[in-house]
Design a binder for these strands. Structure first.
Lengths: 205, 205
DNA sequence: ACCTGAACACCGTTCAAGT
DNA sequence: ACCTGAACACCGTTCAAGT
């Protein structure tokens, strides 16, 4: 089957299929992806000259697009940052297995970048100056990504060890919520602490 | 060359060689590792039946061992947590390229686990109860790992884009410190905020 | 422009065979 | 116990060739 009249593939289609494979199996291979798309592996390179890495980056874009409809600019910067962070983390939570794939790779996806840019603008308008602004963005970014990784493989998984008088093990056995809920709750608590604390960075230098 | 009188390899040696390869190149392969050790790839499996994944886990152990000598239990839980977090992050900072390899994988390394256990004990003795204790550990863990990833590939890398009136770009251009220092400083600021805020979780339920 | 087919270099892992 | 050699199934990527 040579060049068809209507293209069999599109970047979106390919990225979506790869995302589905990751959701199911935790990763994806190009042969596997090609098979899922009823196509030969080499065909994919026409749409993604950047290869596997570029596909992963397109998946980052899919996640960013999934959680878009929070466009309004609240007057309160803390409310905006709160919504931004919650949405960011939520899109990771929908596809936990993708997160480790994304962390190894430099961000180039434009939608994700524009999200950071929006955040930066809100902070700047709220009185954060260059240095403080960067710190705020970095701290939030670090915490969100770390939390997303925790949601993928919660602490509890490896801590329910045999050791009976482990402080961590005891705490985990005593915890009432399931790991997913607990991870989510930890994120909310941490985010609240950060939002409260970041205010002191305003008007700094 | 069949079985030598004195073993050519040891787990430590193998893990150290793999760590060196990662520091240089960002990753390692078993053929490459074998070549660095003057050995055939199959030999490695005798010391690591768990294969590549087990080697990565042993590397985690090496990092944990590098930063051990902070054993004392300060009376102040905040001082202990501060030291613990700083040391944790420092060991990542010495080998930035390793971090993405570690995040994809469940922690089984005993030394790393005992570090978390120690942290949990200090928090418990300071009055954190099960649920609050787990949240505190999770929040700290998330932030440290996220910060380590930021140190590996700082925000600035992708944000110094062409766009001239980008708020993020402007902030980065205006920042005086180099990315590494800035990432470290962001970590310290975030950690301070978290340490202050986590206190309110004590005595909770 | 878009897909195929064949080919390349390389990967992680297994296992019988040596001592 | 510890290393080798050969073998396996699989991977990401390239590129000429078709329409």
């Amino acid at each position: 089957m040579p060049r068809p009249v209507v293209p069999l593939l599109s970047r979106e289609q390919i990225a979506a299929a790869a995302l589905a494979l990751i959701d199911e199996t935790g990763t994806f291979t190009l042969p596997g992806l090609a098979k899922a798309l009823n196509v030969r592996p080499s065909s994919i390179y026409h749409h993604f000259p950047g290869g596997r890495e570029a596909i992963v980056e397109a998946i980052r874009g899919l996640l960013a697009a999934e959680g878009l409809p929070a466009e309004e600019h609240p007057h309160d910067w803390q409310a905006f940052v709160d919504g931004w962070a919650q949405e960011y983390r939520r899109s990771f939570a929908r596809h936990p297995k993708v997160v480790p794939l994304l962390t190894g790779q430099t961000v180039t996806d434009p939608l994700t970048l524009s999200g950071y840019e929006q955040l930066a603008r809100v902070l700047r308008d709220a009185g954060f100056h260059d240095e403080a602004l960067l710190h705020a963005v970095t701290i939030l970014d670090s915490f969100i990504i770390g939390s997303a990784l925790d949601a993928t493989a919660p602490l509890g998984v490896w801590a329910d060890s045999p050791d009976p008088d482990s402080a961590l093990g005891a705490a985990i056995r005593a915890a009432r919520a399931d790991p997913e809920k607990r991870s989510q709750r930890s994120f909310e608590i941490g985010l609240r602490i950060l939002l409260d604390g970041l205010g002191s960075l305003r008007q700094l230098p």
